[in-house]
Amino acid sequence: SKRKAVIPGPAEHPLQYNYTFWYSRRTPSHPTSSQSYEQNIKQIITFASVEQFWRFYSHMVCPGDLTGHSDFHLFKEGIKPMWEDDANKNGGKWIIQLWKGLASPCWENLILAMLGEQFMVGEEICGAVVFVRFQEFYIWNKTASDQATTARIRDTLQQVLNLPPNTIMEYKTHTDSIKMPGRLGPQRLLFQ
């Protein structure tokens, strides 16, 4: 790639990984092929430090203020927010469904935990997604079959998001998402 490498500026606090924000709009009436999905998803910005993140994020629209079929994605640089990416093809995601009004504060807490390496699952985290319309968040990891990792991600989410009682959570492998692209399935976890 000819793009200039993003590095932390002087006196800035570097992050463990560079991250890229992406934005996409869903077209609900048409089933989405991976090709049209890729065309529909746009890179916004890549950052390498805490300060670069805030310079962008402070001016960004909050998920709670957006309407319609929009997703924001925040992924490690080099990982596309697509099932087909090498980092994602054996992976899965936690789905967290929230009540209206909680989307913006929870999204911020989720991404701060990710940027600050609070999950402590090595290289496993790929990125996070907020789907505005359904007030849903997803956190994607590399290895869906690694139950110790997925349990640890769940426990960290519960801590850092301070999830209210009756929050619905479900883990779904990307393979299952491809086969059954609907939303939440029958196996849900309710935090009490």
Binding site: A11, E117, Q118
Partner: peptide
Amino acid sequence: GTRIMYDRKFLLECKNSPIAR
């Protein structure tokens, strides 16, 4: 190797730093 970790409180403090604006 060492991982660069930041807690939420620290990250929020950085938000107000002059170089983050």
